[in-house]
Design a protein around this nucleic acid. Structure first.
Length: 555
RNA sequence: GGGCGGGUAGCUCAGCUGGAUAGAGUGUCGGCCUCCGAAGCCGAAGGCCGAGGGUUCGAAUCCCUCCUCGCCCA
């Protein structure tokens, strides 16, 4: 809010300089207004003079002087201006500007931080999309949390979000699953059995077999068809996955079965549409898609000589369905192992007449687990993985969520189980939550003493003059912008970092200054500080809740 | 062989659409509780930002080459 109004002022000055012939308008929109990294460099800083210097062939500091003169007219907001470094113009605002931010924050309450920048844009966020072959692994956990956090951030920034889970419960993978289940079913009854060579070895298969045995007795012993086994396995595994997701606080609006693409003829119609456009051809009994038309190195097979589609075809058909369902923006959250499919899908989308720019793929790197300082190897088939359930049991939903959101998607994420379990207290999630709980504690105490933090109107906010207080005010004022950035860049870790920084500032302030101390702190100051405390607490609460974390009032 | 993503403090990672003296957490060392919550704070030590070249007023950030790790494809 403050940043926006100051930006307008700076833009006005720039325009004024143009009309007065001080410089040309070549630099319009190229300069920026930033918050300096270092203290003592102002509340904001603009590089306008340096940008212009290159274009006008003039000394940057000289131009900075002219910029400063124009800005100096804004006496209401600006306290001090200075030229610094190579030609920055540093802007120091009056404390009052910051003190006043508390009022709108308190007024907005729970909605502070949310916005309407999304303008009701319809976004489909696809994530997890794990086939039902076993419990969710750690990698899926990261994706679930990442996708969920992205969806939440988009929602509170005014997008209309739809969460979808895409899966396939047919094909070879599923047949092996059924065969594995059948083998265990026979094994449980002491009958001879053949376990498939590449079968699923997890303990959960035995549980599924046991469930079948409990329900159907030995009636399936002579069963040649593997389908009943597959069906039961899929049913139970999905129930398990749904339970895990629920525990993590992740929900979906829809589970989209790949099979419906075949049933509804979408697969065939994609092929025929591409054929009409002359973008497919037959070679070696296979059907090829001319992906070279879309800048790729080589064409791709979409239907194998066996008549079976490759994974590309349903993926393309699925994305076309997303567009047909009238979404303005498709966000796909995938693991990095899906990297190869992305260019093909985008080519397909483009070939079918949709804008590939409306598809954003968030690829996240793998999660590596360490225990006792050693890497834990993971494989679903061999069941040597740690499931999300096990993780949740060990560290709880908040810690798991926080860890998964803490890193940008591009980074591999190392999950140190020893640290996450044994040394809970060092966990950054507690650092943030503790800040919130501390503030709640102060507010509780104030209430006991009959001091009401709600009466912002009456408090004299000009008493908030300590450096730490002004810093907190600046930080919470920047909260909506931080959330907006995290949302639009699909980067939840930015929201996390904002909260961690705010927590640091709060803890420092807490240790240095007292809010309630009748003997040493005047009542009026206490009241002003209570307003600040309530504002910061609100920001913590909103930030934690919008990321799906809890905001405990006591710990 | 090709594509994508990493390589920044002992460790885990931010910063990357170019800006001022490169940051945080953790670990190590040293301080701070007659208490508004020590799950906290303060201080110190710790860096050829993988290597080399280029672009410019300015490069961890952009371009090229190479090394290396991970994932995928052939």
């Amino acid at each position: 809010m403050i940043r926006e109004s100051l930006k307008e002022i700076v833009d006005t000055c720039f325009a004024q300089g143009v009309s007065e012939g001080k410089w040309s308008d070549a630099a319009a929109g190229k300069y920026s207004l930033e918050v300096p990294k270092r203290e003592g460099q102002g509340d904001f800083s603009t590089n306008m003079a340096m940008v212009m210097a290159g274009m006008e062939k003039k000394n940057p500091r000289e131009i900075a002087g002219a910029v400063m003169e124009l800005l100096a007219a804004e006496e209401k907001l600006i306290e001090k201006l200075e030229i610094a470094g190579p030609g920055f113009v540093n802007i120091f605002l009056k404390p009052q500007v910051w003190q006043e931010v508390l009022k709108p924050i308190r007024k907005a309450g729970e909605s502070f931080g949310s916005s309407t920048v999304g303008n009701g844009k319809r976004v489909l966020v696809e994530f997890v999309s794990a086939n039902p072959t076993g419990p969710l692994s750690i990698g899926h956990g990261r994706q679930a949390i990442l996708g969920d956090a992205i969806a939440r951030l988009l929602e509170i920034t005014g997008h209309e979000v739809y969460r979808e889970y895409y899966f396939n419960d047919a094909g070879r993978q599923m047949r092996v699953l059924g065969e594995s289940t059948r083998a265990r079913y026979l094994e449980l009854q002491g009958l001879p059995f053949v376990f498939p060579e590449d079968g699923y070895q997890g303990e959960y298969i035995k549980n599924i077999a046991q469930a079948l045995l409990d329900e159907q007795g030995d009636s399936l012993v002579g069963q040649e068809d593997v389908k009943p086994f597959t069906k039961k396995a899929v049913e139970l595994i999905f129930a398990d996955i749904a339970g895990t997701l629920e525990q993590m606080g992740v929900r979906f609006d829809n589970y989209y079965n790949e099979h419906t693409l075949y049933d509804n003829g979408h697969i065939d119609s994609v092929v025929s549409e591409l054929r009409e456009k002359g973008l497919v051809y037959e070679k070696d009994d296979a059907v090829w898609f001319k992906t070279t038309e879309f800048g790729q190195e080589q064409d791709r097979v979409i239907i194998k000589s066996s008549g079976e589609p490759t994974y590309r075809l349903p993926d393309i058909a699925y994305h076309r369905e997303k567009f047909r369902r009238n979404f303005d923006w498709l966000v796909d959250v995938f693991g990095s192992d899906h990297i190869a499919t992305v260019p093909d899908v985008l080519s397909g989308v483009e070939a079918l007449g949709y804008d590939p720019k409306k598809v954003t793929v968030v690829l996240h790197q793998f999660v590596t687990l360490t225990r006792n300082g050693k890497l834990v190897k993971m494989s679903t088939r061999k069941a040597t993985f740690i499931t999300v359930d096990e993780l949740l049991e060990e560290v709880g939903a908040d810690v798991a969520r926080f860890y998964f959101m803490m890193r940008k998607a591009d980074s591999q994420l190392e999950f140190d189980l020893d640290l996450a379990t044994k040394e809970e207290k060092d966990n950054p999630v507690y650092y943030v939550q503790y800040g919130h709980a501390r503030l709640c504690s102060i507010l509780r105490r104030a209430k006991e003493m009959g001091l009401d933090a709600e009466k912002t109107e009456e408090a004299d906010l000009s008493l908030l003059v300590e450096a730490e207080e002004l810093q907190l005010l600046k930080s919470i004022a920047a909260f909506p912008a931080a959330i907006e950035t995290a949302a639009l860049e699909l980067a939840p870790h930015k929201a996390i970092f904002f909260l961690m920084e705010l927590a640091g500032e709060l803890h420092s302030y807490y240790n240095k200054h007292k809010v309630i101390d009748p003997e040493n702190v005047p009542l009026a100051v206490t009241q002003a500080r209570l307003c600040l405390v309530a504002g910061v607490q609100q920001v913590f609460r909103n930030g934690l809740l919008m990321l799906g974390l809890t905001a405990p009032e006591k710990m």
